[in-house]
Design a protein around this nucleic acid. Structure first.
Lengths: 133, 133
DNA sequence: CAGAATCCCTCTGGATACTG
DNA sequence: CAGTATCCAGAGGGATTCTG
């Protein structure tokens, strides 16, 4: 049979972890330059400290970011991209571009969808104003 | 200041929905040719009927797939890509390629990570032999 | 065939408090 | 500063049953 692309569960898992809601955001920030923990927290509104920690750990585990502890007085920690994540950067940029460019189209699609659902729910049942032929 | 790319919550949401675990898989299948419901179900192991339904509805709502009901004897339903999702296809392919190509590197990174964690946990604390009893 | 509905349980994610 | 620990509500996902 030889399907062209057989996605393995491993690939699915990896992509899910790398492309997840916050991971994308974090990677996008780190593309610019290394960031510290609270720096990331501040630049990504509505990302809680807990979720940030989880996200960072997972990215680190997958070799997508590197964590460096500077043993200064109040401890400082820096997160930076790795070659692995750098190899993904252009893809991520493209994704962000795509999402930005197609948001209007998606918004329209959503309105149509809701409209269609409303018709089904209210429209069809009582023998009524069945509109266009 | 002038941040290069400011990700909006809306973009985050959209990408999260389109790039989610099963959505990716479904879109990848539909790239080849339109599929029927159970056809998708069969070709994607470990995807349950409920999750498939959810995924399909969400993709449809976002204008990424089109649902067509054929009023044949036992009802038939076909799902196909839309221009919107087609515009994303090359990106998705690239992502799958990337994940396939870099899985080995990621596996290595994970082993290193676990190894480092083991050292921290067992290695540093008790003076050497730290035998219980 | 293509789902909708139900039950049930896990796991995520927020809020809060504490620490080296 | 950079987290860990705890509690707790709520969404999500699996298994099962029912239907046009």
């Amino acid at each position: 049979m030889t399907d062209t692309t057989q996605i393995t569960p491993e690939q699915r898992e990896l992509l899910a972890q790398v492309l997840d809601k916050w991971s994308l955001h974090v990677l996008d920030r780190l593309c610019e330059h290394p960031h510290r923990f609270n720096e990331l927290r501040r630049t990504i509104p509505s990302l809680t400290q807990k979720s940030l920690t989880t996200t960072l750990r997972r990215l680190e585990r997958n070799g997508m970011i590197e964590r460096t502890m500077l043993s200064t007085r109040p401890i400082a920690v820096e997160y930076r991209l790795t070659p692995l994540s750098a190899s993904l950067q252009s893809l991520l940029d493209a994704l962000l571009d795509w999402s930005g460019a197609n948001l209007p189209a998606v918004r329209r699609a959503r309105e149509e969808y809701e409209a269609a659902r409303d018709l089904e729910d209210h429209g069809g049942e009582g023998a009524g104003v069945a509109a266009e032929a």
